[in-house]
């Protein structure tokens, strides 16, 4: 009986003598350069126009007629009906339909312009701090205050203003004004553990 038990133990020992085969690990791929690109989320219309981008879509009076008021269509739920000519616009600014009127921001008298709630008129192509941030800030006061202090949104360049210049992004460089909430995006690849067994476990867990 005891001899048999020892025999089994001996067999188990012998069976594992070569050890588990170590699978050669695939090399870690170099990260895609898009994940280290500091370019902001989007290119706003104003930036596109200023830097000589395609402006053909943005001349309102190619289609609209001057001095003729634009009529807005609102459905029974209070949602604005976006006309098919503007179907690239997703109206998702604010919840509970609180911001469903185009002319909360656009100027109904001159569609090339924007207007703040207190009646100031701004140019679409004006990217200075006196422009879009003021429009957005006429509702989002605390955020504008943070932005002016350099705390909301990204500032790049030099923290030491004596040594170099800095650049602050405008609201629309990150947020789409019609649906300002950040969209989900694929994350950059996660860490590869040092230990081969842990690495295999993590990598196989990821593909599942």
């Amino acid at each position: 009986m005891i001899a048999a038990a020892f025999l089994v133990l001996a067999l188990m020992f012998v069976r594992d003598v070569p050890g588990r085969a170590v699978r050669p690990l695939a090399p870690i791929p170099l990260v895609d350069l898009k994940f280290i690109d500091p370019a902001p989320n989007r290119v706003s219309i104003g930036e596109n126009l200023l830097h000589g981008g395609d402006a053909s879509d943005y001349d309102c009076y190619v289609c609209h007629e001057r001095n003729k008021p634009v009529k807005l269509n609102i459905d029974t739920n209070g949602n604005i009906i976006v006309p098919s000519e503007h179907k690239d616009i997703v109206m998702a600014h604010g919840s509970h339909n609180r911001n469903n009127n185009c002319f909360n921001c656009h100027d109904e008298n001159n569609l090339d312009q924007l207007q703040t709630r207190d009646g100031r008129v701004l140019k679409l192509t004006d990217l200075s701090p006196a422009s879009t941030p003021q429009l957005c800030g006429s509702c989002h006061g605390p955020t504008l205050r943070d932005w002016e202090a350099g705390v909301h949104g990204r500032t790049s360049g030099y923290w030491d203003r004596a040594l170099g210049s800095y650049a602050r992004l405008s609201c629309v460089s990150c947020h789409n004004p019609h649906s300002p909430k950040f969209q989900g995006r694929p994350p950059a690849p996660g860490p590869h553990p040092l230990h081969p067994v842990a690495r295999v476990a993590v990598e196989s867990g990821r593909t599942e």
Partner: peptide, 22 residues
Amino acid sequence: TRAGRYPACLEVCPAGARKFGN
């Protein structure tokens, strides 16, 4: 940063979540 610039992790953040300074 000792040359007056922001760190690399800050300059790439798409959400502006990182802040650095004196």
